[in-house]
Write a protein that binds this DNA or RNA. Sequence first.
DNA 1: ACTAACGTTCTG
DNA 2: CAGAACGTTAGT
Length: 236
Amino acid sequence: MSTAVDIAGPSSPDQAHSSAKIPNEPLRPSLKRSSHPYSLSHYISTPSPAVDVKGLIQPSPGQQRAAQPGHAKPRRAPSSWPDMFESPSGLHLAHAAELLMRAGLLALTPAEDSSGCGADFQPFLGAWFPFSPALFPLAGFQMGGGHWRSTAVGAESIEGLVAEGYSPGSLGGGGGGRRKRKRCGECVPCRRQTNCEQCSSCRNRKRGHQICKYRKCEELKRKPGGPGFEILYPTQ
DNA sequence: ACTAACGTTCTG
DNA sequence: CAGAACGTTAGT
């Protein structure tokens, strides 16, 4: 449970000034299964009030200060960054929310009928989500083009969305050659709209040519052909 | 042409 | 092995 933090990534400042141009997410409505070490029950059984999670997520002022760029080492980022910011592996909190949604435990609020809600939460898009039934799904699905409407989106809905034109092949895995795969657009990292500007990828963007760690698609983190990959991209 | 970012290779 | 650097692809 101690690792369930870093989907947040560094929060506030980056919202305002992510220097990099953030493209509109190539949101794909297909919801793919992700193989995570934790099962749904793992999350359900773990009491995690929004406040507590938020408390874990929010970096302390001291931590933020330590993260100030400026004293860049030529190599190897200094250990001043706490693990909570440097370990994208902790994304399972997001995964938990995803699982909960699938299980119908999280309610999806339609963007249109947001009586102000959508606007209120907009600033949180992609940054971090308090583990609250209302906040988390709203962000991504609002951008999703109004596909998501009801509380429990069943597998049929997902399949239908997939059938809208996003085939596994179109994701780059199908061509046969080693074409670039594309971001799934659905996972929490993909839904982030801002670069944290603090992770190693952001700080080293010029040379690293890598997307912000917290925006790195969970699917792309997997090796094609690696464990679980065929599940994500079933051969048809 | 320029930029973003995926994939591969290199390095510690 | 993880992370950095680089080559390359893809979108605008």
